[in-house]
Amino acid sequence: MKATPNNQAFFPLLLTFFFWGSVYVAGKMIAEDIPPQLLACLRCTVAMAPLLLMARGCLGTKIAREDWKYFGLVGFLGYFFTISLIQLGISLTGASMASLINALTPVSVTVMASLILKERITSTKVLCLVLALTGTAVVTSETDNQGDLLGIGVVLLAVLCWGAASVYMRRLTASYPPILVTTYSMAISLIFHIPAGIFSATHQPVVISPTAVAVVLYLGLIGSGLSQFTWTKCLSLLPASTCSLFYPLQPAFSALLGALILGEQFRPTFFIGLLLISADVILSAREAGRQAKENENSQKNN
């Protein structure tokens, strides 16, 4: 039987969201040993090795002068601020909770595209926003721990920042290879990561252990490097809206790994929130696919 793009993309999609889900558990494992900002810095530094390897074929691509500001925005908002906030959120709340809140990313991208690019807000997008807010409210309804609430707020801010960065990333990937955009933006983020990481290392205790070293390597090489390759591979086989349908797998994998490795326990509200946010992601992805088809048909007619 001849392999279809769907069949070819299925395994890389599973791997991608498993890697992304595992990042939260891995980060939580050493949250007490390495300050969040230093961990974010080390993660991005290590990630440059596989990214440069994957982007080596397009590093000679000429970048228009006016596009560098967008690379800067993606680097700062997406790969510095977002990753730093996520690592901080993981240290404050559970790995599964942070991953679940981060699953709202497709909705954040839709909202930010409407605000920044003035894309049309449809009734489906409004429903997605309602589901996202409801799912978040349900998850936090029984949370009485101040650290958890603060962690959830930090991750929500990270989701909004990544949504804004993704809008500018979409603009760049229309002209440049996605892996090149990721590599250059990650490199720019190090301009901010390195001084912030050094500052945190001098003001907070750092415990270097074999586990900490292994986790840092995993976060950089697998969580940020290999996962970027598998995600890019998926996007080359299927539309982004279809790939986004798998987003609910990220918190599901995090919950499974969190229970197995960290011994995390979940209240019923976590699973109710997971269902609501999953429905929200699926609706958002379907809406994105529908609009993409409309734009394609409109261009053909013109």
Rank of each mutant, 00 (worst) to 15 (best):
G225I: 02
S254D: 04
L77Y: 01
F270A: 10
Q146Y: 01
V107I: 09
I34S: 05
L219S: 10
M97T: 12
M29V: 00
E294T: 11
Y24R: 01
C58D: 15
A174K: 15
L172K: 05
S108M: 08
S244W: 00
L127Q: 03
A292K: 14
V126H: 02
S298K: 10
K28I: 00
L276F: 03
K125E: 10
L104T: 06
L157K: 12
P35I: 05
L133G: 15
I198T: 01
F253R: 07
P210V: 04
L275R: 04
S175C: 12
S185Q: 03
I63T: 12
I222T: 08
I63G: 10
A95F: 06
P268N: 07
R267D: 15
A164N: 04
L262Y: 08
F229R: 09
Y79C: 07
F192M: 08
A174L: 12
L275T: 10
K62T: 03
P251C: 13
T232Q: 13
S241Q: 08
L180R: 04
L219A: 11
G60D: 11
I101D: 07
A279I: 00
L59W: 12
L88K: 07
A164S: 13
T242C: 07
F11A: 15
T202F: 12
G223C: 06
S284R: 02
T242F: 13
I116E: 04
I30S: 08
G78I: 01
G220I: 02
S244H: 02
A158G: 11
G163I: 01
N7T: 15
G163D: 08
D67M: 11
A64V: 02
L245T: 06
P210E: 07
W68D: 08
N297Y: 10
V111N: 07
W20E: 06
A288I: 00
Q8V: 03
R65E: 14
E264C: 09
S254A: 15
F229I: 04
Q204N: 14
L150R: 12
H193A: 15
P35Y: 11
T242K: 13
T183L: 09
A47N: 04
V181M: 11
W20M: 09
H193L: 15
T143S: 15
A279L: 08
L156H: 00
K118T: 06
Q204H: 14
L235E: 05
G220L: 08
I272Q: 03
G57H: 02
V281G: 03
L217G: 15
F10M: 12
A240L: 09
N102F: 06
T269M: 06
G225H: 10
L42D: 09
V74H: 01
L129Q: 04
V181Y: 09
I272T: 11
N301C: 03
A288M: 02
K62M: 05
I83M: 08
L100S: 09
T173R: 11
S224A: 14
G223P: 05
G225Y: 06
E119W: 05
T45Y: 01
N302V: 03
G21V: 02
N301I: 00
T183K: 11
N295D: 14
G258R: 07
G258T: 02
K300I: 05
S185F: 00
L52E: 08
I152M: 10
L73V: 14
S244T: 12
N302S: 14
T93H: 05
